[in-house]
């Protein structure tokens, strides 16, 4: 077991800033797991959606950033619609993405996408993707 939670590392990131970006109160989550249960992309995620919130509640944003979960989320908002506490997880995922992107770490590179695919894809796919994965 790595990464023991200690008094030194619990809640050691700027939760106010996080709340400002996401507009969401992560402490409303009581970890029922409904978001994970209904997530159509959960199979592809390193962390289940509810684990993202749990880690954030404990201030472990670095753990979240290490995983692919926020980049797998397609903001389909199924979790938000069924969340018993009305937590908008899609906004929380976006806030984590933004925190990474704002450090000039783009997640996708337009130049690396094959031109054949680029031409075939509908604009909304490209624009949507760049909106989420680049700054």
């Amino acid at each position: 077991m790595n990464n023991k939670l200690t008094l030194e590392n619990i809640q050691q990131f700027d939760l106010d800033e996080f709340q400002e970006i996401s507009g969401e109160n992560i402490f409303a989550c009581y970890q029922c797991g409904n978001c994970s249960a209904g997530c159509p992309a959960a199979d592809f995620m390193d962390l289940a959606p509810h684990e993202v919130i749990r880690l954030l509640q404990l201030g472990q944003i670095d753990e979240v950033v290490k995983t692919n979960t926020v980049w797998i989320c397609a903001a389909c908002v199924t979790c938000r619609v069924r969340c018993p506490k009305g937590v908008d997880l899609s906004k929380i995922m976006e806030a984590v993405r933004q925190i990474v992107l704002r450090k000039k770490n783009n997640y996708v590179d337009l130049n690396k996408i094959e031109s054949e695919l680029r031409e075939k894809l509908p604009q909304i796919a490209l624009v949507g993707n760049f909106r989420k994965f680049t700054l």
Partner: peptide, 28 residues
């Protein structure tokens, strides 16, 4: 199983239960 069920639907005469177990972090 510790978790909420997100959805139920009918398929092949069964009720498909889409749930999760947060303790093992696995969907069920």
């Amino acid at each position: 199983l510790r978790g909420k069920v997100s959805r139920l639907y009918e398929e092949d005469g069964k009720v498909v239960v889409c749930g999760t177990d947060t303790l093992t972090r696995r969907n069920v």
